[in-house]
């Protein structure tokens, strides 16, 4: 993301994702019908599902970038992996918080070990650990190597955790979450799809901003080295 062409593309992406987000928001409140059982609270669902999906997608990108880094050793893969985790953590935090807000009117409690909510919380913990790991390793090359490995292994455990949690919930049936079924109208599906599209665009916009930040910070490090080298003669 360097150069003035990219500068334009960057702005188009940022503005475009903002516009599509507004469209999605309008659809959530004006286009989608009021759900019969849950009422207006159900309108949380669209952005909640979209952020969960995009968060998970962000971690998948980190997994791929981790593989890319280990195979090639190129800095850009590490920049991509790190940026994707930061954006993913932002989105998955939204998922967990709004899921807990949703749980209150739906099931009468702020937290339930509902599998989808639980796996989001597990992912949040995993990728916060990823960021802590990065903060705790000396040396850029070693940091990139370790976090690539962690990003790969972590992502592989997510589906395993998902199945384990789901079976665990079936063994301890949760009466609270029994009434989960809602009647899905076509307009709801349209709204959900546009929301997911909007969040994906927002992901791309935030990702490219975060990557740009990392490249600028690289430039700063190079400049510091240059000055240091010269002052030493």
């Amino acid at each position: 993301m360097r150069g003035s062409d990219n500068y334009l593309a960057q702005h188009l992406l940022t503005v475009g994702s903002g516009l599509v987000m507004l469209v999605a928001l309008g659809m959530v409140f004006l286009y989608a019908p009021r759900e019969a059982v849950m009422g207006d609270v159900q309108r949380i669902f669209y952005f909640h599902v979209a952020s969960a999906w995009v968060g998970f997608f962000g971690f998948f990108v980190t997994f791929l970038a981790g593989v890319g880094y280990l195979l090639s050793g190129q800095r850009r893969w590490d920049v991509l992996a790190l940026s994707s985790v930061e954006v993913g953590v932002t989105f998955i935090t939204m998922t967990v918080v709004t899921g807990s807000l949703w749980a209150k009117p739906a099931w009468g409690t702020y937290w339930t070990w509902e599998p989808r909510l639980t796996i989001s919380a597990v992912q949040l913990l995993i990728y916060v650990a990823y960021l802590m790991l990065r903060g705790s390793v000396e040396g850029r090359e070693q940091r990139a190597r370790f976090s690539s490995v962690y990003g790969i292994v972590a992502f592989v455990t997510v589906p395993l955790s998902w199945f384990a949690i789901r079976w665990w919930r079936t063994i301890h049936p949760d009466i609270l979450t029994g009434g989960d079924q809602m009647a899905i109208a076509p307009r709801m599906i349209h709204t959900l799809l546009v929301s997911i599209g909007a969040f994906t665009l927002l992901y791309a916009a935030l990702l490219s901003l975060r990557m740009k930040l990392e490249w600028t910070s690289d430039e700063l490090i190079r400049m510091r080295l240059k000055l240091e080298r010269r002052s030493r003669g």
Binding site: L25, D40, V41, R43, I44, F47, H48, S51, M94, V97, T98, L101, W102, K104, P105
Partner: peptide, 9 residues
Amino acid sequence: TLFAAYAVF
């Protein structure tokens, strides 16, 4: 609740 959720987003 709905308001709070969208405020979070």
